[in-house]
Every structure is written in structure tokens, then in C-alpha cells.
Design a protein around this nucleic acid. Structure first.
Lengths: 249, 249
DNA sequence: AACTTGTTTTCCACAATGCGGAAAGAGGCT
DNA sequence: AGCCTCTTTCCGCATTGTGGAAAACAAGTT
């Protein structure tokens, strides 16, 4: 049995999110089909708690409290990802990572290290720019072209190694390739001698994270890329499903 | 006014977050003081919607749906501020924050953490009283004296540390200083050992937000305040211009 | 300034909805 | 097995939330 008012409050929040995080009361009414009075009352409750903000023009927007909860939940995601990352390590023999886009930065939120002696160092919590990483390219490939390029515009695509893509045109082409084949590569673009392969994690609605394996160039090159990517995509798909429907029954 | 069940559902989510994103039903009961049956019913509702997830040991954890909502919310406010905050981090080496005045409270809406090992913990979404923070003093210094003092009248300026300004007269003088030099300091007034420097963000019409850097007292004291403030003011000015040109908030 | 239109906000009588104590059920330990 | 702790289900009652309709508001339009 579900609690009606809570269910509806969530409908309101999701309607707000669907409108890009900002909407008027009547737009929410149109989307949810709830009566005005009801929506207004729910919004007041969310307002007091900081889950919704009211702009100067009386429209409503998602509030800061959600950012906080989202942050804690994100950390949890890292814990759930462990078994899936472990499978990727088994598949590739290399260190597996989970990363999300936070603002204009890529943040690594979880890792399972490779059993090999020579392996990637723990990067959890590290923030890097998207243009020089496989996970960054995968995550931005999911966004509309203009939005992705705006990120690169702001961050400036600084050169990290001789292989780093620093040209906007080349990057646009790279993103098209990633969209096309469904995975991204990093061939020593962030650090010389380190190669990565990343696939998107789709929770059913959108790409919310990326998973990657990374290791020494020689070892990564020895693998069959398409086969590895295919295996990783299956794992990422399972993980995305778990994320999307935490309902169970 | 407020919808009881929604309010309580939020209590449950926050209790979960306070326990690090994962807790048993009884732990939630202990923290919220709500009866077991009620919490269980609320959790079921959140579970079906994916806002909460049940682990194999029947404990509850924050769910993936929150990551999505949090992301949208953060993108709204954070995305614009991110690059500017990053510049402040570069300038100072310390964690940079964006905060707004919401009612009588200061709410932190975005942050870029310092690259240092010892740094401020994420405060995004946190609500604090204005009198003990640099951002609060900057935001209220922009208001007419009567209006600012009315806020302090209502909140009561509770003492947070030995350095907190708790006297109305002293606060009035402090605001005058802030107006005069264009930036505000917090010298361990909210938390001992933590110093901050905040500058106003003016969107062309009025001060709509404040940006600050904060870190360990020793490191902040080692910086040249006026020089830092000058650099920060330039960044905040650029950000304000961007805000002013797009639709306001 | 006085309409018009498209909003958002407030009100209130009614009953459906959510409440919560207490009992049953599930695991985990020794 | 037995005991203990924690979770889940149940159900009668009245508190709580509901939603239609009207009032207040903001922003254009003549």
C-alpha cells in the first residue's frame, strides 16, 4: 500500500525535473493531472523543507536539499556497483571504475582494482576534466552536441599528453564515433601509457554514469576491443537496471 | 499548511542520509521518533518509486531516483557557478562555495572542493543562520540596515563558538565594515578553526548570491586578504554578469 | 485607468486516507 | 531448539488531506 500524498509529492518533483528543473504550477498540473489546490499544498510542504525553491516570478524549481540527498545517494551507488565492477575486472583483468559527471568535472565514485601487480592507483573521489578520459567522452556523448561542446568551451580542453584531443572539431568527431559504436576509448590522452575503455550506464531514463576499465597500454591493446566492450555493455546494462528499478516487487 | 505524510517521508529520507545513506527501520525510528508502522508504510511508498532501496539484509538505503533528481537540481544552480568557483579554488587553493539567502537562512547551492588533502566537507544543501557565516554577512550587508537587523531579530544570533558575534550592536558595526571594504570574513564564528572570506555576486540589479572560500584558519591567515578579495570580486563580477544576461532566478 | 487573460493562492465542508498500537513473522545468535 | 531483536502486517478510528470553486494577483491590451 502506498501513501497517496507522498506518491503525489514525488510526481510533482519528477514533473519539475522533466521540465528541466523549473516549471510553473499549471505546467505541473498539466503533466501530473492533479488538481491545482493539491499541487500547491504539496509544493508548500516541499518549499518549507528546501526541496523546491520559488523563483521571483513565482515559478518553482528543484531546491538545494535535493542536491544534498542526491550526493549521499551517489556515494551509495558506489557500494552497489562493486559486484558489477568486479565482473568487469574478471572480464578484462584490469582495474574497473565507476564515474559520474558533476558540473563540468568527471568524478570517480567507485573502483575495483585489478589483481595484477602493475595496476592503476585508486582514483575514487578524484576529479578530472572530461575531454581526456574515456568516461568523460561516454558521458558527454549522451548529451546534445551543443551542451557537450559548452562543457569543453568552459573547461578549455587543456593538453595533458601528446595524445590529448585539444581541438573542438576533433572532439565533435570523436563524440560522434562514441555515439555510433557505443563505447569510448582513451589512448593515453590523460596519462601516457594508460589506456581505458568506457561504456555508458543507462538507468532506463538516461545515462547517469559510466563504467571503465583501465590499465597499461600494452595489455589493453592486447584485448579484443569490440568483444570487451560487448561484455562490459552487458554488465553496465544489468547495473543500470538495478539502479532504475530499485522497486523489486 | 504542510502535508504531514510528505513531511514525514522527507524526515525518513533525511534520517537515512544522516546515517550515511543506509539504515535499518529501527534506526530511522530512533532518529525520527515516528512509530514503526508509519515509517514502514512510508518506506514502501519510496521503495516502489525507487527513492529508497532495500538491501538483502532488509536494511534500507537511498535509491537511484534521488541521484537523478539531485543531478537535475545541481545542474540548475551549480552548472553556471562551477567554472567560476573553480577559478576561486585555483586562486586560493581552498574550497569555494556559492550560497543564497532563502528566507532567513543561508543555503549553500554549489561547491568546488579544494585539491588539498585537508579540506572542507561538502556543504551543498546545508542551511545555516546568516550571523555566523561570511556569506550571510555579505548578503545581509547589501540589505537596508533595518531589514538585515530584522532577520537577526527573528533568528536570535545563537552562539556557535567563542568567536560568534551575538550582540546586535557589534553586528551592525560588522555589516558597516563589510559594506565598506566589499567583502566579509568569518574567523571561526561558525566552527572553530575554520575561516572564510566571502564576496557578493551582483547580477546587475542587486546582490543575489555570495561566493566564498573556506579552509583551515592557518592557511587562510597566510593569504593576503585584500589581494584575495580583489581577485574573488573580479570572478564574482563575471559570474554576476552571466546571471544577469540569462534569465534570473 | 479600466478591462481581459492566464496565472497562483486561499478557503472549507466532507469523507477518504493515513494513523499507530499491538500482534505476528523472520532472521540471527548462543 | 530456544531466545532475542528487528521487520512486517493488520484493522478500527478520527485525523488528515482532498479538490472544486472563488478570490487574489501579475502582466498584457485597448
Amino acid at each position: 500500500m502506498s501513501v497517496q500524498s507522498v506518491d503525489r509529492a514525488l510526481d510533482v518533483l519528477e514533473a519539475l525535473a522533466a521540465h528541466g528543473g523549473e516549471a510553473g504550477l499549471s505546467e505541473i498540473a498539466a503533466r501530473t493531472g492533479l488538481p491545482y489546490g493539491t499541487i500547491h499544498r504539496l509544493l508548500q510542504t516541499l518549499l518549507v523543507r528546501g526541496y523546491v525553491r520559488q523563483e521571483s516570478d513565482r515559478r518553482y524549481a528543484l531546491g538545494g536539499a535535493l542536491v544534498r540527498l542526491g550526493g549521499v545517494a551517489e556515494r551509495m551507488v558506489g557500494v552497489w556497483a562493486q559486484p558489477y565492477l568486479a565482473k568487469m575486472v574478471e572480464l578484462s583483468g584490469e582495474t574497473a571504475n565507476l564515474a559520474v559527471l558533476e558540473g563540468d568535472f568527471i568524478v570517480y565514485v567507485a573502483q575495483v582494482p585489478s589483481p595484477r601487480r602493475l595496476r592503476m592507483f585508486a582514483e575514487v573521489g578524484r576529479r578530472v576534466l572530461p575531454h581526456s578520459t574515456a568516461v568523460g567522452k561516454v558521458l558527454l556523448a549522451d548529451r546534445p552536441d551543443g551542451e557537450a561542446m559548452a562543457v569543453f568551451e568552459r573547461t578549455g580542453m587543456p593538453r595533458r599528453t601528446a595524445n590529448t584531443i585539444t581541438d573542438a572539431g576533433a572532439m565533435r568527431a570523436e563524440l560522434a564515433t562514441v555515439r555510433d559504436r557505443g563505447y569510448a576509448m582513451d589512448l593515453g590522452e590523460e596519462e601516457l601509457g594508460v589506456h581505458c575503455l568506457a561504456v555508458p550506464v543507462n538507468d532506463g531514463a538516461r545515462v547517469v554514469a559510466a563504467m571503465s576499465v583501465s590499465g597499461p597500454a600494452e595489455r589493453i591493446e592486447a584485448l579484443d576491443r569490440d568483444e570487451l566492450a560487448e561484455g562490459m555493455r552487458k554488465i553496465a546494462l544489468d547495473f543500470g537496471r538495478e539502479l532504475g528499478s530499485s522497486n523489486g516487487w
